[in-house]
Design a protein around this nucleic acid. Structure first.
Lengths: 213, 213
DNA sequence: AATAGGTTTGACCAATTGGTCAGGATCACG
DNA sequence: CGTGATCCTGACCAATTGGTCAAACCTATT
């Protein structure tokens, strides 16, 4: 149950770089669309333009590809939360976070579905990463929110559940895209502009403190 | 690509009833935990206490079990939304809906994950049901919300996106349960009471109209 | 051009999986 | 009790799948 992709001491060849990237790109496509078990190594290889044995020359196993993909993507996936600035204006900061997260659902729906697929099934490949790198980050930012509440700069709100609210609603537009488009009236084919308006308004109302003393 | 479970003219025997129920119960367990492709007929059969050929005596195929499960469950899954009463007090009605939906996430997480798994992957078995039965219902209730807004009984809000907000946040506690529990501080092992408080507060603030004239 | 190391492939394998089938066991009912 | 319908099973099958391997093929360096 190794993570694959250990950094060998030898430098990476041009070919290695190109193929590893092609594999991860193809794997993102296939894993996010069909889940870990639903994806086949053959599909990934074909989409990466390689033969199956050749793909397995670069990664020791299907699982290793999946883990390498999750680990490699986690950082950029968490960047918006990292950017939440304790020194900024609370409501601006949180709204910026909401907007960036929604933008990621729009631009990187495959990544969102990739994580969702794994967590939905108990996070067999993600659980460790979650408690290892996500939890400390969330604890840190939850503390920031708690302080903003204590200073009465935003309305009282449970920090962790506020974060869950942001995740749930923004990622919903990536993970459940099919449902969203199926249900929205036919006219508008791009849900995101109205989603942004809606979420900004919802969180503004949720967070604006009661009229100052 | 038949739906299975056509209503035969012959009446159902005791044994048929018992076994069909056992199969669907086992299938709910397995499909919700591993997704359609990740589930095996053998697992379902074992968990239902039957042999694989015996299970296939009751349902013609794995797909038929899945479809029968989804169709059979959809109604009870949508009951809370159906119960939204156009004649009731708007904010009470919506909050009651939020509470019932959250309660379902708590009591029926498997059903939530079952639907989530399918929609996540483009809804191969759910798309038709969605546009067929869910869409009319959502259109109807969105109209109710639109009227409440027009009558200034709740703050201005996009009806469809409000519904998405409710779904996303309540189902989050079922679908992403593993993540929620991994991230929440260790002390509290039951996220739901605080989630309810949080969501009630969030939607109250979102919906309460500006001070009356 | 030789050669050593990196890259690619076709052929293959064992395990798993969805599904079939012929026949045996059991049940309901006259 | 007998008999037809229902219920159940072991053995089997074809297809798919993750992974291996020896040999062939490139490519960079001397």
């Amino acid at each position: 149950m190794d993570s694959g992709q250990f950094p060998s001491d030898k430098p990476e060849t041009r070919i290695q770089k190109r193929n590893r990237e092609a594999i991860l790109e193809a794997a993102l496509d296939v894993f996010s669309a069909r889940g870990f078990r639903g994806a086949t190594v053959d599909q990934i290889a074909r989409e990466a333009g390689l033969s199956k044995p050749n793909l397995l020359y670069y990664f020791p196993s299907k699982e290793a590809i999946h883990v390498a993909l999750l680990t490699g993507l986690l950082d950029s996936w968490l960047a918006p939360l990292r950017a939440l600035d304790p020194g900024g204006e609370p409501i601006d900061e949180i709204l910026r976070y909401v907007r960036r997260k929604l933008e990621m659902s729009r631009q990187m729906p495959r990544e969102s579905r990739l994580f969702a697929n794994d967590i939905l099934q108990g996070g067999p490949h993600l659980a460790d990463l979650l408690t290892g790198v996500l939890k400390p980050l969330v604890d840190e930012k939850a503390a920031v929110i708690r302080d903003w509440v204590a200073a009465e700069r935003i309305a009282p709100v449970h920090p962790y559940h506020l974060i869950f609210s942001i995740w749930a609603q923004t990622q919903h537009y990536a993970d459940f895209d099919m449902q969203v488009r199926a249900l929205l009236p036919a006219g508008e084919n791009d849900p995101f502009p109205e989603a942004e308006q809606h979420l900004v308004s919802l969180f503004t109302r949720t967070l604006k403190p009661a009229a100052a003393v």
